[in-house]
Structure formats: C-alpha cells, structure tokens
C-alpha cells in the first residue's frame, strides 16, 4: 500500500500539511492535491489541518527568504513528485537550517535547487518573450504555455512594470487567467471567466508589423547563427513570440 496524503490545491495548504507530517514524524509515500486519481494500491488520507498563511512568514523568518523561494518555485514546477521533493527539502531544512542550500551532495536538496532554478529561468525568459496585444477595449492581452506554472510570477512583474494598464495573461496549457485591474492581480480558472472578445484593433496589426520589420532588419546577415539563436530562444516559445510566427 502507498500512503498518499492530500492537500487542497494551494501552496499554503501544502506547507501546512508538510509541517504537520514532519512534526508528527510521519513519512508519506507521496503527497498529492485533491484532484489526485487514487489507484487500488493507494491508501489516501485527507487530514483536517488548520491552514494558516502565517507559515510562510515563519519559514522566511526561521530560515530565509531564499528557502521560502525555493519551496515556492518547486511548487510551481511541473515535476511529478514536487510535493515529496518539498517534503524532503523541508526535512533537511529542519536539520541544516538556512545552510541547507549548500548541501548539494544530498540528492533531494540538489534536486529541489535544480528544479527551483529551472522555474526561475523559465519565468525570467518569459518576462522577455511574452507579447501583449492591445484589444479593442485597450486591455493588453497575452497568451503563454509555459512548462511550469509561472503565470503569477509574470503577472507580478507586469504589475510593477505597467501599473496603469489593464492586462490579461492566459496560460493555454493550464487554462488559467491572470487579470490585473490597476490595483491587484487575480488568478482565475477558465470555468469562472469568459473571454469572448479577443479582437484586436487595426492599429495593433500595424505596430506588430513595424516590430516584425525591425526584427528582420536588426539581424546582421554576415553573422547569421541559427544554433545560437535556438539556444537562447528555444522553439517551444516561438508560437507566442510574434516576430517568430512567420518562421514557424
């Protein structure tokens, strides 16, 4: 039998569960959110635990902001066993405190650091590669399909950058939207949000064409280097980078 512990599909719920398991010295075979499809070999346990968002401050205060960030980034990753990785990372954090990040000889610590880095890298890449278009009602709209669930990180970045614009970012892989209303950023699933009009204005096409033209012009043909470009701008992102559309 595999003992699987369940949490509500959010970060705080996961941290509170892990905290509880560690305090009670329970070693789970796995940890999954409530959408998990149990098999006959699973024993599924859903504990009633008080979920307190204060746990985040505790982690930041007792260990470091960096430790919190690593846990959060692993949580946003698409790794199958991300919850278990956070569990073991947390376990080692109890032992080594903020120095846990130097213990790369421990497999689970190293894995957590690696995954966190990948997530951070993807978010950073998309801060550059994401493309907004202006809808008829002047709202900025962008679509992405990242490997990891980085939409919230991106929304926070654009909130700081464009505080006086309304914007919507859609994650096509996960069917979630991030909205910004010039005050707050909201995350909404497709079921609760209906965006029927993504029509853009005439001006939009002109500006996009101007940009595509700039993009074509700026490359120096004597230095053409396809491998290098691919390296920095992998093809999986191209479908959302408007200047690359035509090359797909």
């Amino acid at each position: 039998m595999n003992t699987i512990y369940l949490y509500h599909d959010n970060f705080i719920s996961l941290l509170c569960l892990i905290d509880y398991l560690l305090k009670n010295k329970i070693k789970p075979d796995n940890i999954k959110d409530t959408s998990y499809n149990a098999t006959l070999l699973d024993e599924v346990i859903f504990l009633k635990i008080k979920e307190d968002s204060n746990i985040i401050n505790k982690i930041k205060k007792n260990y470091s902001y960096r430790i919190f960030k690593i846990m959060y980034e692993v949580y946003l990753s698409n790794h199958d066993n991300k919850e278990l990785i956070i569990y073991y990372f947390f376990l080692n954090t109890l032992k080594y405190h903020q120095d846990v990040i130097y213990h790369r000889n421990l497999r689970c610590v190293n894995l957590a650091l690696k995954i966190a880095k990948q997530v951070g890298n993807e978010a950073h890449k998309l801060k550059g590669f994401l493309r907004f278009k202006e809808l008829k009602n002047h709202i900025l709209y962008a679509e992405i399909a990242p490997d990891n669930n980085v939409i919230y990180l991106l929304a926070l970045h654009f909130k700081r950058r464009l505080p006086h614009e309304y914007f919507i970012i859609k994650d096509k892989k996960r069917n979630i939207y991030s909205l910004y209303d010039k005050k707050e950023v909201y995350l909404i699933s497709e079921d609760n949000f209906n965006l029927n009009e993504v029509e853009t204005s005439q001006e939009e096409k002109q500006i996009a064409d101007l940009w595509k033209n700039f993009y074509q012009t700026i490359g120096i043909k004597e230095r053409k280097n396809e491998r290098c470009r691919m390296n920095f701008m992998p093809k999986k992102y191209w479908q959302y980078i408007i200047e690359m559309e035509d090359e797909l």
Partner: peptide
C-alpha cells in the same frame, strides 16, 4: 520605476535576432 515602465536590474532579453544576439532595446 515610473508611472509607465521600470527597469530590471538583472536585464531582460526580449528576443534574439537571426545572428543570435540579444535584442532588448529599440
């Protein structure tokens, strides 16, 4: 940081031209 836009201390590449160079500025 201003009303319209900010800078990123660590720099952001927005695209890469055919020669593989980072495009971040107009």
């Amino acid at each position: 940081q201003n009303a319209f836009g900010n800078t990123s201390f660590s720099g952001i590449c927005h695209s890469f031209s055919a020669d593989g160079r980072c495009i971040s500025l107009l």
